[in-house]
Design a protein around this nucleic acid. Structure first.
Lengths: 138, 138
DNA sequence: AAATTTTTGCAACAAAATTGCAATTATTAT
DNA sequence: ATAATAATTGCAATTTTGTTGCAAAAATTT
């Protein structure tokens, strides 16, 4: 488990740096999604804000993490599952946001039912954001 | 059709001002959702940024418009249908974002299918964001 | 039409995000 | 292992986005 971040970086042809390893480790250690501020805090302000922005962008580009649409439009990032390839994310995402503890988690093993859209609409990616009370607060 | 915005404002016990009328007219004239910047442009920079922010907030509070969760976390607003009451929005929203023309529209007449969540999760509100190609670009 | 209430615009401020560039660090080739 | 090359980082400056207090202006009420 210790070299997981390293593996992921190498697999994505990214140079291995302190910031990338630590930030990726954070995602691996966390169930929930992370905001930029979370990362800044959890790395002990070890890295420049700009570095964190760029690292997150790089990870998104490579398909390692993805952004989550939120109702309050804060920017959240979460790990992609293996099915996500560079530039070609897994098309169905369910995210659960807990109103109590405010955690945001990806629920990957549940499939989104087909949606019948009006004529002419060609859906590609579907994001479902469910909010309520999570299993740990319930 | 010309007095629609006026009606809506009166119905919601809001004083009728130039900015509110014009901004509401913009929503009524538009199929798609609008961002703060769109409104600033489309009103010809007639109103102060702050006024637009406050007007949008007022409309959200009254349930006239609602925010849309987006993957790129830009803040979008769209008209609510009649079912939306103040502080109590219609719970099921489908939003479609076109990858080609970038328009975002509410698809209100389609219901979101039930989702089977893992044990312990109590869902309250569901947002569905679908992206792909819209009927006009197709 | 005057009194009252609400809204607006300005200025200042705060937070969030982006860009260019030199210094540093990682990778590649020898 | 070390030098050469390439990529990444941190800093400073800037831009964008959103907020707050307050006096002037506009809308509503009486």
């Amino acid at each position: 488990m210790k070299g997981a971040s390293l593996e992921i970086l190498k697999h994505n042809h990214l140079s291995v740096t302190e910031s990338r390893k630590k930030i990726l480790d954070l995602f691996l250690a966390n169930i929930g999604a992370l905001a930029h501020a979370d990362i800044e805090k959890n790395t002990g302000e070890q890295f420049d804000r700009v570095t964190i922005y760029r690292t997150l962008q790089t990870f998104v580009d490579k398909g390692i993490i993805h952004t989550i649409p939120t109702a309050d439009n804060s920017v959240l990032y979460a790990l992609c599952k293996d099915e996500c390839e560079q530039g070609h994310h897994h098309d169905n995402h369910i995210h659960f946001i807990c109103d109590a503890c405010n955690i945001t988690i990806c629920i990957d093993h549940i499939t989104i039912p087909e949606l019948k859209l009006p004529k002419g609409f060609a859906p590609k990616r579907r994001d479902v954001v469910v909010s309520g009370i999570c299993n740990r607060c319930n």
